[in-house]
């Protein structure tokens, strides 16, 4: 991990030591896809029964564990920001092999937007001390913002290596590959860095019963904003929901079959009648 050393790079210079690594992984608790997701008073409704770890965050946990495998000693810390049920996301990460958890919970964070969520996550990362990497999923399936990783990198002043479908590291340097807008990019940065991964970056391990039981005794610290040195004013949202309404259920399709071999022609007729040709 990073340590402040003297020697030929001068005082204050940080040098990579292959020995120990500390990696933070951000895990979000999201409503189960099949559940009836809803807004109430401008906020997404959340509960334990129908919540789950954002699936691609399992890839983030796996990537964090893999990064640690190169070190002689590694500590992986799962962090979540969210109401009480969100601790389940941390528990899942602990079952997969994370060492300990940190759950930021505070009434002032109810309905937190990107900025407020990021401020809390960044403060949580700082509270951990020196960290070699912060790993996240590429997007949360409920908000689908895909912006928290970039915001976190900006807030922490770290290079970002986002939407990675391949991650490798050696000697304190991380290399990722990502596909964006018709091109494959390869980026490289020295640690510490913020890394976000896609669902094809790896195959998340399935915890066995033994690991599930062992995870129960792992420590999850519950902290408030005050514990992180933040005041409610630091996490005031910069956005507000003015209105949220359920869209009318779709009427159901106009259904035709191709049993008579006319399906393609009827499809063409529909497109023409809708002015789409």
């Amino acid at each position: 991990m990073w340590s402040t050393v003297g020697g030929n790079c001068g005082s204050g210079c940080r040098e990579w030591q292959a020995g120990r690594m500390r990696i933070v992984v951000c895990v979000k608790h999201v409503p189960e896809l099949e559940s009836a997701r809803a807004f109430s008073e401008g906020r997404a409704v959340r509960s334990t029964e129908d919540g789950t770890l954002n699936e691609v965050d399992e890839n983030a946990v796996e990537a964090a564990l893999a990064l640690g495998e190169g070190a002689s000693e590694a500590e992986v810390i799962a962090v979540t920001v969210g109401p009480a049920p969100a601790v389940d996301a941390v528990r899942r990460a602990l079952q997969m092999g994370a060492d300990r958890g940190l759950h930021v919970i505070d009434d002032a964070l109810v309905g937190a937007d990107y900025a407020a969520t990021t401020t809390a996550l960044a403060a949580a990362v700082r509270s951990i001390g020196e960290v070699d990497a912060v790993v996240t999923g590429m997007a949360a399936l409920d908000g689908l913002g895909a912006v928290v990783p970039s915001l976190l990198a900006a807030e922490l002043g770290l290079p970002q290596m986002t939407v990675a479908h391949e991650v490798s590291s050696a000697d304190g340097v991380v290399t990722i590959k990502r596909d964006v807008a018709g091109a494959t990019e390869t980026w490289r940065a020295p640690l510490p860095a913020v890394i976000s991964v896609t669902d094809v970056a790896n195959s998340p391990r399935l915890p066995k019963m033994k690991e599930i039981l062992a995870a129960r005794s792992k420590e999850v610290a519950t902290v408030s904003l005050a514990d992180l040195g933040l005041a409610a004013a630091d996490v005031v949202s910069r956005t507000q929901v003015l209105e949220a309404s359920r869209r009318p259920d779709r009427a159901g399709p106009e259904l035709v079959t191709d049993d008579d071999g006319q399906g393609g022609r009827k499809l063409a007729d529909y497109l023409i009648s809708e002015g789409l040709i």
Binding site: R37, F39, A44, S237, Q240, R247
Partner: peptide
């Protein structure tokens, strides 16, 4: 749109 297109929301920044 939110939640798989089932909700319409209107949001404003406060800044």
């Amino acid at each position: 749109r939110a939640f798989g297109g089932t909700w319409d929301t209107s949001c404003a920044v406060t800044t």
